[in-house]
Simulated scan of single mutants.
Amino acid sequence: MEVDLGLSCPGCHEPWLRPTNLPGRYRCVNCLLRYELRSVCPNCGEHSTIVRMSKTATLACNHCGSSMLVQV
């Protein structure tokens, strides 16, 4: 039985990324890095509509598949 611990951190790649009280902001409880969800992919520049609700947030680019999170 596999346990889902949460989203993976782009920095340390551990499953401890958690939403903060600000919409579109995340913090890793393992390495303590903070991230912001962007509407423009930092990898390919493709614009995407983002949903900032924690349960339905799309954190990967629909075009290239890279992370839409940018370290703050």
Rank of each mutant, 00 (worst) to 15 (best):
G11C: 06
D4T: 07
M1W: 10
R18W: 14
L17T: 07
H47F: 09
N62H: 03
I50L: 03
C61H: 04
G11T: 00
C44I: 08
P23W: 06
G11M: 01
L32Q: 07
L69Q: 10
N21A: 14
N30H: 00
T49M: 06
C44L: 08
G11K: 01
N21S: 11
E36Q: 10
C41I: 05
L22Q: 11
H47A: 09
G11R: 01
N30A: 02
T20D: 10
G45C: 02
L37A: 03
C44K: 05
Y26P: 08
D4C: 05
E2V: 04
E36R: 09
T49S: 04
V29T: 09
T58L: 12
I50A: 01
T56P: 00
P23L: 06
P15I: 06
C44E: 05
S8K: 14
G65A: 10
R34F: 14
N43M: 10
A57K: 04
V40C: 13
E36P: 02
E46Q: 15
S39R: 03
E14W: 01
C64F: 15
Q71N: 13
R25I: 15
S39P: 06
R34S: 15
L32E: 05
R34C: 15
C44G: 01
Y35E: 13
A57V: 11
S67C: 13
V51N: 10
R34V: 15
L33P: 02
V40S: 09
P15S: 08
T49Y: 06
C44W: 04
R38S: 09
S39T: 05
E46D: 13
Q71G: 12
P42A: 02
L32R: 04
C44N: 05
L22M: 12
L22T: 13
R52W: 05
R25W: 15
P19E: 08
R34E: 15
C61D: 02
N30T: 00
G65D: 09
W16H: 02
N62Q: 05
V51C: 08
C28T: 00
H13M: 14
M1T: 12
C41H: 05
V72Q: 11
V3E: 14
T20Q: 13
P19I: 02
P42M: 03
P19W: 02
C12N: 04
R34P: 07
W16V: 00
L5E: 07
G45W: 03
W16R: 00
V72A: 14
S54I: 14
G11E: 01
C44V: 06
S66Y: 13
D4A: 09
E14D: 07
R25Y: 15
V3I: 13
R52H: 07
R27A: 09
A60N: 14
W16L: 00
P19Y: 03
G6M: 05
L17R: 08
L37T: 05
V70Y: 03
C61Q: 04
M1C: 12
Q71P: 10
N21M: 08
C44R: 06
K55G: 02
E14F: 01
Y26Q: 05
H63I: 10
V29P: 00
G11L: 02
N30R: 00
L17K: 10
Q71Y: 03
H13T: 12
S8F: 15
L69C: 07
R27Y: 02
P23S: 11
T56N: 03
R25D: 15
L7K: 08
C9K: 01
L33N: 12
V40F: 06
P15N: 12
T20N: 12
C31L: 00
L5P: 10
